[in-house]
Write a protein that binds this DNA or RNA. Structure first.
Lengths: 210, 210
DNA sequence: AAAAAACTGAACTGAACAGTTTATATTCGT
DNA sequence: ACGAATATAAACTGTTCAGTTCAGTTTTTT
């Protein structure tokens, strides 16, 4: 039956597909696209190169598949970032720390680095990552701002800019240090200092409480 | 004379040295370290490969030389970023726009991308760039804060954090879009919106004027 | 247990590329 | 004008790496 089923798609079956994706994830995240060799990936996945090429016609497509999976992962990670009903000082403080811990984690660092490094080679990549991560957080923040403004707790003219400013404030000091390879682990105290500062500065500008 | 002059250093003379550096700069900034082929660089410089290798023993050393020159260039660019005597709202507004235009320029973008991409391969690179650029701006900002605090115009507890926050505020919205390849040219209006927002938020927190 | 599907390892191809060599040409100091 | 230094084009070496091939083994299906 199904005479039309001669599809040119990737085989979605096979015992080792998950292994291949997992190995590719590890190696791509560690070494980037150019830095990762297919032999490395096959070894890491515990799979022969022929098997790998049976699932994915070439390295680029494997990379795109991994990137898509990482975007989905991001979406999940951003879902419960903000406690929508808490008052600003609290809700923002929690959101700041969650954002920071994601951004500063080895995972966040590697994903960002790869997006930047490969955005020429894969023009879609940056946008898709942006939409599945930062843009979603921003949308959630704006939702929260609206509610808090209705409760009279915040006073914001440009909610888009306010959300972007808050996100940037959370990167103060630490993010550049991470990107330039000056520091790659951050203590709770360092994170607390920046998170507190971000909330304080944000509230000074946008807080409505007298 | 000078019997000790059999030095193993690079030839600092030669008609085409400047051409080589200029070509290398163009190609490295455009394609990164891995992406740049030595043949490309030689072609871009209008020089034979043998000549290039006569000046620089290998690709890495050529890259490092170019990177150092770029750091110097950065230092100059940061020198007159702040008008030290103007009142905060003005001085910061000018500084914000200057910083933004540097960071968002093709030059700034490429330098940042390369630092991020190659910071594993060249651990010094990120730190040197940081020290010749962002760290210098930060130091200048802190100097300015001190003076403005003495004049009673600002009130800042943690001047380091304040400087970092201001720099990050200047990146709101635009910088992520640049890095993820979503947008690469920015109108005066877009820049003005973010610069004004950065100053307003900063002054709300740290301004002393009543 | 037989047939089909999935997998393996190892060897291979072809292209890209860093770096070298060589034989020749250009430029510069004197 | 002559020799030394500098530059050139082109071919060459050795390596790395994506992707292929294949003869044979394991796993799954029936």
């Amino acid at each position: 039956m199904h005479p039309m089923n001669i599809e040119p798609t990737l085989p979605r079956t096979g015992r080792k597909l998950a292994q291949v994706l997992e190995g590719a994830r590890t190696v791509f995240l560690r070494d980037g696209f150019e830095g990762a060799s297919v032999d490395d990936i096959a070894r890491e996945a515990g799979v022969s190169k022929a098997t790998l090429y049976n699932y994915f016609p070439d390295k680029r497509i494997l990379f795109i598949e991994v990137a898509k999976a990482e975007c989905c992962r991001q979406e999940e990670a951003t879902d419960k970032m903000i406690a929508m009903s808490a008052p600003p000082a609290e809700a923002l403080r929690v959101a700041a720390e969650r954002m920071m811990r994601l951004i500063l984690s080895p995972f966040g660092r590697n994903v960002f680095k790869i997006c930047v490094a490969e955005s020429d080679r894969f023009p879609e990549l940056g946008r898709e990552f942006w939409e599945s991560g930062p843009a979603r957080v921003r949308a959630k923040m704006i939702d929260y701002f609206r509610q808090a403004m209705d409760r009279g707790e915040l006073l914001i003219d440009d909610t888009d800019l306010a959300a972007d400013q808050f996100a940037e404030l959370c990167k103060s000091d630490l993010f550049p240090k991470l990107m330039f390879g000056i520091q790659d682990r951050f203590s709770d105290a360092e994170i607390a200092r920046v998170a507190d500062g971000a909330v304080a500065t944000f509230m000074a500008r946008y807080g409505a409480a007298k």
